[in-house]
Computed example of a mutant assay.
Amino acid sequence: MADSPTVPRLILASNSPRRRQLLSELGLSYEIRLREVDESFPPHLARAEVAEYLAAHKAAAYAPDLAPQELVITADTIVCLDEDVLNKPTDEAEAVQMLLRLQGRAHDVYTGVCLLHGDGRQVVFSDQTRVHFRPLTVAEIEHYVRQYRPLDKAGAYGAQDWIGMVAVTRLEGSYFNVMGLPVHRVWEELVKLGAVGV
């Protein structure tokens, strides 16, 4: 297990500081590797399939360069309101509009994860969390967008930010999944792959 010479070297293919924090808090050592990957997806996919598709699509971009003893972790988080997928807002105005739609309602957050081993083994999974927002005023939303500029976040918010403290009334599922990585599932799958051990 942990002292085996065959334990793969972990690669985190993400620029997200939240994902870096969560993997570090698991006690895992990893290397960051980044490249630009198109994040569009086929429109016919079901909501849970979108997050898994994007995670696997990202991993495929790293596959040609993976050494046999490397394992890349890719992830993608989407926010869904009814049947609409709310991606990262393009500007502050769109962020405000997204939050006006989310306020006072429940929505779903899906994070898809792909673990791709250099030997060709691949695991793709997703986790879902239902998030309940209390009603928010326009002033509260504009304050959050202006102060925290959540343009790099799906759905225009981060649960770990100010808005998470004042708006989220209830979660059904993993809080860490809303942050961007369902760490309980990641740990479980890494154990199965022999990538971690305690």
Rank of each mutant, 00 (worst) to 15 (best):
T6G: 11
T6E: 13
V7K: 13
P8D: 01
P8Y: 07
I11C: 05
I11R: 03
L12I: 00
A13N: 07
A13V: 04
S14H: 01
S16I: 12
S16C: 02
S16A: 05
P17K: 00
R20Q: 10
R20W: 00
L22K: 00
S24Q: 06
E25I: 03
L26T: 05
L28C: 06
S29K: 10
S29P: 08
Y30N: 12
R33E: 01
R33D: 06
L34N: 07
L34G: 08
L34W: 06
L34R: 07
L34F: 04
R35W: 07
D38T: 04
D38C: 08
E39N: 04
E39H: 05
H44D: 11
H44Y: 09
H44R: 14
L45P: 03
A46R: 03
E49M: 00
A51E: 00
Y53Q: 04
A55K: 02
A60K: 10
A60N: 08
L66P: 10
A67V: 12
P68F: 15
P68W: 10
Q69R: 13
Q69D: 11
E70S: 12
L71V: 09
L71H: 08
L71F: 05
C80L: 03
C80D: 09
E83G: 15
E83V: 09
E83M: 13
V85Y: 03
P89K: 08
P89N: 07
P89C: 05
T90A: 13
T90I: 09
E92Y: 10
A93Y: 11
E94V: 04
V96Q: 01
M98P: 04
M98Q: 12
L100R: 15
G104L: 09
G104Q: 11
G104I: 09
A106N: 15
H107S: 14
D108H: 15
V109A: 09
T111H: 05
G112H: 01
G112D: 00
G112S: 02
V113K: 02
V113P: 05
C114E: 01
L115E: 06
L115I: 04
L116H: 12
D119A: 14
V123M: 12
F125Y: 11
Q128A: 14
Q128D: 12
T129W: 08
F133T: 10
R134F: 14
L136N: 10
H143S: 12
H143R: 15
Y144V: 05
V145W: 00
R146E: 09
Q147L: 02
L151C: 00
D152P: 02
D152T: 04
K153F: 01
Y157C: 02
G158F: 02
I163W: 02
G164S: 05
M165A: 07
A167P: 00
E172P: 07
F176C: 13
F176D: 12
G180W: 03
P182I: 03
R185V: 09
R185H: 13
V186M: 14
W187F: 11
W187D: 12
W187M: 13
E189W: 11
E189I: 14
L190T: 07
L193P: 13
G194P: 05
V198F: 13
